[in-house]
Design a protein around this nucleic acid. Structure first.
Lengths: 329, 329
DNA sequence: CCGGCGAACTTAATCGTTTAAGGAATGACG
DNA sequence: CGTCATTCCTTAAACGATTAAGTTCGCCGG
């Protein structure tokens, strides 16, 4: 094993307590001793044993990262969130631990010794998430949880209403008269907010809403059928805001078989950007949700919350900008 | 806090040591007492404190999961691996901890208190990976590490040569005369093995190899240029095995602008399957690498290795089948 | 000259668990 | 009846850290 506090103390001929106080900046040791201890610690490569600390302080400095398994079903977005979380915790004293999701049974089998939870996309159909929020431990959610859940300590979210309006404006600018909305699920607050914003926008503009709701594993034939209905309506849907990760290319492919294309009169906006949109032929305009930033900010917020005493009176909410990236002609 | 061993002991009027022995199946307590202890533990909801255990046993039951940041750059595959790892550890006593990657500096800033590492795709350009393998702790790699690295304890890998041959055979069956290989990186043993297998296959069949090497963030124009060269060769490349995650749809899009299509004389096989291939228009044949299974098996292997005393004499290697999923006409 | 005080340490307790060592009771056996 | 092994439990130490509660010692003021 590595150097322990006792090793250091023995080496210096003083007590372990003195070494601890010296290293942690606590009063009770002379400046001279403190400096000597620091030097020796450096020299012997002393690293405090986190387990010992955890036991003594009853604080593990470990954060569970939880996500419903559906989040990853079809997702580049998820990988970026992970990357952000890892990066965000990298310069704190905390470490992210991956938790199994308990979507079905609703029982998080065994709460590990963690100080808090980062919950990625709390979906209303994920029972485990409710349990985590009820646990009383620090929680930061990436995207807001449903209203029926216990309030989290903090939330990192996108400005979905603005993103929706920007997207619709862009579709209209590209010639759409009755832009539609395609959603892939309705269990996240994000997609619910988007749908509400879309309907609000339609009401404002006197447009009959065209909402196509599909699921991730639905067949192309079925989706084609749904698309056909809206495209063949009296006032045809002639543009789409696709709210879901990695779905827009799939829709673009289907539209192509109907003789429609993003650069040929049927504009498309993806609600979630990724390299897939950037390098698609033709490129697809998209909302940059900055998932890496989400993860990063969630981690930072968690670290900040744990540094403060107690839990905040009201959930801390951080809204990240979600700009529209315009692509193609 | 929860119920402790001492609480239980007090409740039963016996010593904490007896309770510990009873619960851990150690000899030294009567069967009757053991049963009483079990019942009381159940009743009071006793869960051993992992920190206390960790300190005493100097074993944290926590496993670092490490991956080079490039793995996630463009990847659905990665999300599935994560899901597998989480699921694989879910019914063991171990928990996966996410580690920041140290690709550039090569210094894993601070080894956390973990019993081992699962290294996802050890890329030869990732210096942090070398350090983890040198640490002496238990390591299981998903995909083999480069030969220059310290040997890992275990490896979970795909049968890449077989997958390559299957893919080429399929391309030929679909009419290709000179099937080419498109790779997106050359730092993984996986892609190196594929390239070697491809070249071997070409030699066997008296075919001039057509290898197109691109990088994930290369522009479509540049890739178009490279494709043009091979498609305009004296013996034109007329089919592609695309070794990389989520790249095939992008290539399909580019080929379309050249008047070629997977279902129109230019067959395509993706080296990595995902829902993107399944739902692409037209669907794209692909190798099912079963990333979820990778993660799962890596986790299981790690748990098994840690249960055995010492490290295995030779690296344990587990090869998972990687069948070709044929799609389209 | 002594009480008191602050500085700079040390000692010891503590967090929750495991386990080696010790001890009381019981039964077997010579 | 004494000895010895066996069973079943308790005591105590240990893991590595932090921290409350002593313990010296020098120094200042009265």
């Amino acid at each position: 094993m590595g150097t322990t506090l006792k090793d250091l103390a023995g080496h210096l001929g003083i007590s372990a307590a003195a070494v601890s106080m010296a290293l942690n900046g606590k009063p009770g040791v002379s400046e001279q001793t403190r400096e000597e201890v620091r030097r020796a610690a450096e020299e012997l490569g002393y690293r405090p044993n986190r387990t010992g600390q955890a036991l003594r302080l009853s604080r593990t400095n470990t954060i569970g990262v939880y996500f419903p398994s559906t989040v990853m079903e079809y997702s580049l977005y998820f990988a970026e969130i992970m990357r952000g979380i890892v990066a965000g915790f990298a310069d704190t004293e905390l470490s992210p631990l991956l938790l199994p999701s308990a979507g079905d049974t609703g029982h998080v089998r065994d709460f590990p010794d963690v100080d808090g939870f980062v919950v990625v996309e709390p979906h209303s159909d994920d029972l485990g998430m409710f349990e985590l929020l009820r646990s009383g431990r620090a929680t930061v959610c990436i995207d807001p949880p449903p209203a029926s859940a216990e309030a989290p300590w903090g939330v990192v979210e996108a400005d979905a209403p603005a993103a929706t309006r920007d997207s619709l404006r862009h579709l209209v600018a590209r010639g759409a008269v009755r832009p539609g909305l395609l959603t892939i699920e309705s269990v996240s607050e994000w997609s619910r907010t988007i749908e509400a914003s879309y309907r609000g926008w339609c009401a404002e503009h006197g447009i009959d809403p065209a909402v196509i709701a599909i699921s991730a594993r639905q067949s192309n034939e079925e989706i084609l059928e749904l698309l056909g209905q809206e495209l063949g309506a009296p006032v045809p849907c002639d543009g789409l805001f696709v709210a879901g990760d990695a779905v827009a290319p799939r829709i673009a492919g289907l539209l192509r078989t109907m003789g429609r294309s993003p650069d040929g009169g049927f504009p498309l906006v993806s609600g979630v950007d990724s390299t897939m949109m950037e390098f698609h032929t033709p490129p697809i305009s998209a909302i940059d949700l900055n998932p890496y930033g989400y993860g990063m900010h969630a981690a930072r917020m968690m670290a900040a919350l744990l540094r403060e005493p107690g839990r905040p009176a009201a959930p801390r909410i951080e809204q990240l900008p979600a700009p529209l990236i315009v692509r193609g002609t």
